[in-house]
Write a protein that binds this DNA or RNA. Sequence first.
DNA 1: CCTGAATGAGACATGCGTGTCTCACGTGGT
DNA 2: ACCACGTGAGACACGCATGTCTCATTCAGG
Lengths: 183, 183
Amino acid sequence: MAVDRDQVLRSAAALLTRKSTATMDEVAKAAGISRATLHRQFAGRDALVRALEALGIAECEAALDAARLDEGPARDAVRRLVRELEPAAALLAFLYTENQLFEGEEQNAGWTRIDERIAGLFRRGQRTGEFRIDLTPPWLTEALFGLLASGAWAVSEGRVARNDFTHMIVELLLGGALRREES
Amino acid sequence: MAVDRDQVLRSAAALLTRKSTATMDEVAKAAGISRATLHRQFAGRDALVRALEALGIAECEAALDAARLDEGPARDAVRRLVRELEPAAALLAFLYTENQLFEGEEQNAGWTRIDERIAGLFRRGQRTGEFRIDLTPPWLTEALFGLLASGAWAVSEGRVARNDFTHMIVELLLGGALRREES
DNA sequence: CCTGAATGAGACATGCGTGTCTCACGTGGT
DNA sequence: ACCACGTGAGACACGCATGTCTCATTCAGG
């Protein structure tokens, strides 16, 4: 009776994040439904990944909105953004590596908009003099996603405590590894 | 005749870095040999990936040696390390994502040693007071590989100029995005 | 010139994931 | 109680990459 599509999507995301080559049968079992029903919800593996991508984009944009990127100091906006993005980090890490496979096809327009909003935040920080100008906004955006993925993986491997996730990423991204003389 | 095994490995690395799902047949064609010969050199796809992993480990350790990690200020050692690692970045990016698949099996001991050497460098920097102590060496190591992979991908996508590769990674890793008042 | 080793081309069987279909079962609504 | 709908289970064929094998060809060395 009306399988909870969103619930299926969540469990699929949780499984594929750990094992990106999981079979449709494994995905179905993980969701507690049969392969037939899974296939009734998502036409095929490709459709499933696309749905996951749409979910990732939606969560990203929700985080972007919740972080109020254009309010206050840019550095604080970055902190809020990473904090909001944390719950979606594992899914984003999966999609980040999965995207390498879509080499031929053009990527979903949603990512372009998200990249643009984040790059805009970094540009704002550069304009106000908060951020250095020798690191380009596109690179900072790329690095943010890369660190998000690394962080998610490090947490799942037990190399970083889950509670430190946001702190590790934000501090490295903003402050770097060097000690600062001034505060 | 005696097919140049190392040459085959290099071209396989170059191809798989761009298209991680490439067929054995595609790998063979890229190397300019037949699938039969490729299979005579590497028992199967698994053996090929393992060989690639061994190559990546070897290049990493060579870079580690060339960077002389225990000489001079730790920050300079990090700069040398990234510079030495740059040629191998694409291969490492491939292996970095491929490693997610080896979930069940234990990872190659070579990576453990490499991780340990790099983490040791960060620990040394913390001891000398160069690096902040709230970012753990394992996380900095993980972040270094993550940024290396992000950088390699950004370059191949044209989002970052190839010449800026080392600078972008080193500066972000060491200094972060914030402008520093003092030099 | 001859022999042998290595290579390329292709055929062939196999395993695996996938997509599709059918049918029986259980549940909810009428 | 009856009917309809969604579901689970399984069978089936297909596509595709893989692994293995054979055979002709080519090139190097004796």
